[in-house]
Design a protein around this nucleic acid. Structure first.
Lengths: 217, 217
DNA sequence: TTAAGATAATCAAACGTTTGTTTGATTATC
DNA sequence: GATAATCAAACAAACGTTTGATTATCTTAA
């Protein structure tokens, strides 16, 4: 489906409001007011409120998919470099598109209420992401740089889960690390840096060869 | 605040519906129908829908707090045993109270819309949890069993985030591990076992002394 | 123990808003 | 002159909440 400029603007406003208040708590009148359009325009362009959020997922899923393909073309680097690049890229991606990410988290919490279209888009995207990560790990395993037993789905879940958790408990994070008085940009930078170093360490510890790895193989 | 049997039943029904559909998408008529009461009873007992969810958080926060205190009394064990016990206990706790946990996740996503009462209860609970974890780690560090540099808040965030992520993407998890045809109980058992072994490994790798730890100290 | 009186619980019905959506006329663009 | 975009207004349905009457439960004094 192709969307014109006006439709994309409506989608963008809806995304921001859905992220902040949730789908049900956001009225079409909220959206039309923020987007400076008439209430009837949402139905006119998308058909219904449900179709609007479907369009949102359609557009953003396509963008993320394209970005994933890009990442997969970063060859000529060592497996460990590629792992670090993938971790950094994923953290950057989520922080850049926090609103959409927030909407995804909300929708994931109601698997039943969700339209099949959204479910399929999300599952597809997550699987694509997992395959990319697996291919990098397997490469390192073939070269004998990584240990033979790596639970990639769980590592990926840990990565995403941690970033999500941090994002949805921002103020708690700032309290714990005593950075409440920093600007919002500085707080985010703190979180991003912390996440990147944290996961560089975790991935290193979880995929580097174990002492007995050469013996058992 | 004390609540009678009827109130606790309403809270329990509301909890289940809030978890499944979200606060805004759940109407008082939904709740009263499921709880087999008159619509006016919610206002009669709690005052309003907002006060109802506050009561829910009040009750559950108290329960969780009490359970945390219990956990802290498990002395006479080695620090590593206590870490494992804490990880297992936390995973069990979340899986047991999935509904409430789901509601917490939803509320965390709208920090602005939330009433201060809920925010404070959640922050308090999270801090209490963090302090418990820190005390165990510090004990291990004093004994020289754990490395000196452990980022406890990040480890805790990773633990919670991963469990959350897994719970909110259950069907994706089952697809990845090919256990869609198992019963729901078996699927949950699979997830719990996987989580526990995963985090035993992560914690081990992240807190055991590094090779150069004795040199730098 | 019982009758009377007070308090608590329950109910159907109605309240005024807000909801998503549609209509039909008007304006802009091609 | 046709198609697309925009608008104020209206629509029925659903919302949280209140009302006022009715029933159940408890309290208290004879």
């Amino acid at each position: 489906m192709e969307y014109n400029q006006k439709q994309l603007q409506i989608i963008s406003v809806a995304e921001r409001l859905f992220a902040a208040k949730g789908f049900s708590a956001t009225s079409i009148r909220d959206i039309s007011q923020e987007a400076d359009i008439n209430v009837s325009m949402v139905s006119y362009y998308f058909g219904s409120k449900d179709k609007l959020i479907e369009a949102l997922f359609e557009v953003r899923a396509r963008e993320f998919g394209a970005r994933l393909d890009e990442l997969l073309r970063d060859l000529g680097l060592s497996p460990m470099q590629r792992v670090n690049l993938m971790v950094d890229g994923m953290i950057n991606r989520i922080f850049e598109k926090q609103c959409f990410h927030n909407v995804v988290l909300r929708e994931q919490l109601s698997p039943d209420r969700r339209t099949p279209i959204i479910s399929e888009l999300l599952t597809e995207l997550k699987l694509k992401n997992l395959r990319a990560m697996e291919s990098i790990i397997h490469e390192g395993q073939k070269l004998g740089i990584f240990r033979s037993e790596v639970d990639v789905p769980m590592l990926s879940t840990t990565l995403y889960g941690t970033v999500n958790q941090l994002l949805s408990t921002k103020s708690y994070y700032c309290t714990v690390y005593g950075i409440q008085d920093l600007s919002e940009e500085e707080q985010e930078a703190h979180m991003i840096a912390k996440l990147k170093s944290h996961f560089k360490k975790i991935f290193q510890e979880m995929i580097k060869p174990e002492l007995n790895d050469s013996i058992t193989s």
